[in-house]
Design a protein around this nucleic acid. Sequence first.
DNA 1: TCTGGGGTCCTAGGACCC
DNA 2: TCTGGGGTCCTAGGACCC
Length: 454
Amino acid sequence: MYALVDGNNFYVSCERIFRPSLNGRPVVVLSNNDGCAIARSNEAKALGIKMGAPWFQIQHLADEAGLVALSANFALYGDISDRMMSLAAGLGHRQEIYSIDESFVELTGIRGDLAERSHKIRARILQWVGIPTCIGIGPTKTLAKLANHVAKTAERKPGVYPDHYAQVCHLGALSPQELNAVLAATEVGEVWGVGRRIAQQLKDGGIHNALDLTRVDLATIKRRFSVVLERTVRELQGTPCMALEDEPATKQQIAYTRSFGQSVRRLDELQEAVTEFACRASEKLRRQGSHTGQVLVFVRTSPFRAKDPQYSCSAVFPLPIPTSDSTTITEAALAVLDGIYQAGFNYAKAGVMLLDLVPAERHQYTLDLDLSQALEQGWGTALGRRAPVSQHVQALARERLMGALDKVNGRYGRGTVMLASAGLAGPARSWTMRQERMTPRYTTCWEDLAPVRA
DNA sequence: TCTGGGGTCCTAGGACCC
DNA sequence: TCTGGGGTCCTAGGACCC
């Protein structure tokens, strides 16, 4: 049996902890660049604001309906998430942190009334951290997800499901008739793993709700769609196909991409941005203990500016020796940028992606063969050659330099030490993000600590 | 004027190999 | 006239997730 613990309207709830005056009001949290709504309070949803709605299209609601918009404050959300996760873990023995606001908890071996236990954990998270959550329980992860959807919907929209499923819903405790009623009341597109495209195709085929989906022919689903959807159907039928993954998997690629605060035309500005992005991606790479073998850079104009000439291009720089060194990665990224940059466009976005990741401890040395030597003296001699000792010493020194860089930036703040080609902070960096409604980093920064009045 | 970021997995098709 | 069978690897694109 699995539980899924999910923070309600998570980013908005984080903001409300430190600003209780936002309770009861329509609130949205905006994406980077204050571009569009990525989290909405129930009141904002009631105003008809859709997920991903561009801010400039809903801005009028600020005056008309008291809508409050805030810039995304990921330092705050990450810290609140850690606190919520540690309490949610108390529900069972093993936990998989699935996203910033969701975790699966395995309930195998837990005795007693699971729903009652969940209500207690829920109350604790609300009181100790300040985040309202919903908990769904089911025999598979897909059913736990569905139960969570039921718990949330029963709380927010009365009438769809029985009221007592609100906040905590335990599908494993239902009779077959009750379970079928829940599945029948759930649109097929709400099932985890069924997106917009597949939902439409299923509906065209007469499969409208989750109950319909449990009754399809597995072989047909596999043939017409994929093994992925087949797995979803099995899970919906109660057969576990997805295990709990409590060890976070090492990433296979690492990206740092951003839209610019305003469009950028000049190469030197793009060079600044790409330097910064390459360094940030390299930091992430070192944090997970990997080296990269390929650096990809892309630039593109905005598809929303239909009148602008459009351009989008990317290219890869293969590194002869995998590395996590910021300067090497940046040099590679800038070389790619030189190759793909075209003058005369309004660039809206760029990114650096690190591919072909390998564990840092797996060293790879260049073969450095001298072919003529090999032919004259045999392969053994040629392979026996070693790169000069100085090269290894240099590599070691670089590693320590990067370690020191990360430590300094970790302690004194990001950007304390950086590569000069990233440009100096200030108005000169025209490409930096717009964040005009940012709240303080209440829990992760001394200067931003909330004052308490007597 | 103004539209996010970061991932994963699967599949089909082509290149290539024996 | 008539041209096999089986396999791997890589890439691009599509679908999904939050």
